[in-house]
Simulated assay, not measured.
Amino acid sequence: TNPRRAVGYCSLLLVGLRRTPVHEAAQRGESLQLQQLIESGACVNQVTVDSITPLHAASLQGQVRCVQLLLAAGAQVDARNIDGSTPLCDACASGSIECVKLLLSYGAKVNPPLYTASPLHEACMSGSSECVRLLIDVGANLEAHDCHFGTPLHVACAREHLDCVKVLLNAGANVNAAKLHETALHHAAKVKNVDLIEMLIEFGGNIYARDNRGKKPSDYTWSSSAPAKCLEYYEKTPLTLSQLCRVSLRKATGVRGLEKIAKLNIPPRLIDYLSYN
Rank of each mutant, 00 (worst) to 15 (best):
A108W: 08
R65G: 05
S31R: 07
Y106V: 03
L37D: 02
Q36C: 10
E24T: 11
G84Q: 05
I82G: 00
Q35E: 14
L71S: 13
I82T: 04
L55G: 06
Q46S: 15
P21G: 08
L70D: 02
V100P: 03
K109P: 02
G74C: 08
K101T: 07
I52H: 12
R19S: 06
E39I: 09
H23P: 04
I82N: 02
Q76L: 06
R65L: 15
C43K: 13
V49K: 09
V110R: 06
G62Q: 07
Q68I: 01
H23F: 04
S59P: 11
N81C: 12
T48R: 09
D78A: 10
I52G: 04
L69N: 14
S105L: 07
V100D: 00
G84L: 03
A58N: 02
P112C: 06
A42P: 13
E98R: 12
C89M: 01
L17C: 00
L104P: 12
E39Q: 15
G41A: 06
T53Y: 06
R80F: 00
P112Y: 04
L34F: 11
L103F: 12
R18N: 11
L114K: 04
V64G: 03
P113R: 14
L104Y: 11
V110C: 09
L17E: 05
R28P: 00
S31P: 00
L37G: 07
G107S: 06
S31D: 09
G41K: 07
A91L: 05
G29T: 03
L60T: 06
L103R: 13
R80T: 11
S94L: 05
H56Q: 03
Q61C: 14
A42G: 10
L102C: 13
L71G: 13
H56M: 03
L103A: 11
Q76Y: 07
A117Y: 03
Q68E: 15
A57N: 01
S105G: 09
H23T: 02
Q61K: 15
N81D: 15
S51D: 03
K101G: 01
P87R: 06
S31I: 06
T86K: 03
S40W: 04
G29W: 02
Q33F: 03
V100H: 07
A117N: 13
L34A: 08
Q61N: 15
Y115L: 13
L34N: 08
Q61F: 10
A93H: 11
P113E: 14
H56N: 05
T116P: 00
C66N: 04
C99F: 12
P87S: 04
R19H: 00
I38T: 12
V77R: 08
L104D: 06
L32E: 15
Q46R: 13
G74A: 08
K101P: 00
L114N: 08
A75Y: 01
P21K: 13
A75P: 03
Q46F: 09
L69Y: 15
L34Y: 12
V77M: 08
L60H: 12
A42K: 08
A26H: 03
A91N: 05
P21C: 10
Q76S: 08
A93I: 00
N81Y: 00
A57H: 02
L104N: 09
P112V: 05
A73C: 09
Q76M: 04
Q61L: 11
L88N: 01
G29L: 04
P113Q: 14
A79H: 08
A57W: 01
